[in-house]
Design a protein around this nucleic acid. Structure first.
Lengths: 138, 138
DNA sequence: ACACTTTATCATATTAGCATGATAAAGACA
DNA sequence: TGTCTTTATCATGCTAATATGATAAAGTGT
């Protein structure tokens, strides 16, 4: 569903949201906890910081924090720098043009399903996933 | 959503369902009509034949026909030889174990969406997509 | 200024998906 | 049997995603 990279991004953001309360979280700690290759994760986090999802702090006591309040941070915002899911899910048969007017064979039946997926990413926030504050499996 | 290969497979099967009425359809014709690289398509069709979705006939007047009645042929059957969608969509965060009992952070909200996608592929048949017999965009 | 910690970035390797070109094998039919 | 048409398969190349290792740059505290 998600590319490996986008999945790493999502898990990392959830980890930051859960653990960076006050102090930022270091890459090494995250890479270790989430079993993600360290330098690869570093690049992903940097990209997320570039997009405003995270804030990076260098030097001693550096690391990453959320750049957006968790209840304002949608999964779409986390994932789109790595997977262009909106565009991917438009047409099941990959037609460049596929709409109600120029429908492919699958359009009528597929559009609701694709819509549900898009809505999920657009409407679900990081806060929704962390829920009541109980520790959560990432 | 689908890999390029699975998308080719689906379009090819729809093409066969629509055009192989009586005589089989040749690879070259299909590759041309669907703008799919010929030898690559050949391999995909061979794989579909191996899985019983298509039947291949060699020699003069050879080509491919459906191996299953269109109203019994689900999109899942067409696509799973190339994309293991069932497994892919289980857990958004990629956990090997993720169920109601061992839920990841996203499980509760994601499972309905993932279920809708899985149902679509399991329940939709080739006949559903071809519908009333009017020519259809593939 | 210096030492230390941490992120940023560069160079490169590995793998899988996608694709092409050439040749082999099978079947139809004169 | 021989020739033609068609699928089957082999060998190879290309590209992007994924990953690793080494080094540079930035910031903190003494």
């Amino acid at each position: 569903m998600l590319s490996q990279t986008a999945e790493y991004a999502l898990r990392a953001v959830l980890y930051v949201a859960e653990h960076a309360t006050g102090r930022p979280v270091r890459v090494a700690e995250m890479a270790d906890a989430l079993r993600i290759p360290r330098n690869y994760l570093s690049k992903i986090l940097h990209q997320l910081a570039h997009n405003g999802v995270l804030v990076s702090l260098r030097g001693k006591a550096g690391g990453f924090q959320l750049g957006v309040r968790p209840d304002r941070l949608t999964l779409s915002a986390v994932v789109t720098p790595f997977d262009r899911i909106e565009q991917q899910r438009r047409c099941l048969l990959g037609r460049p043009q596929c709409s109600d007017r120029t429908a492919c064979a699958a359009h009528e039946r597929w559009k609701d399903v694709a819509g549900a997926v898009a809505d999920f990413f657009r409407d679900t926030t990081v806060a929704d996933l962390l829920g009541n504050g109980a520790t959560v499996r990432i």
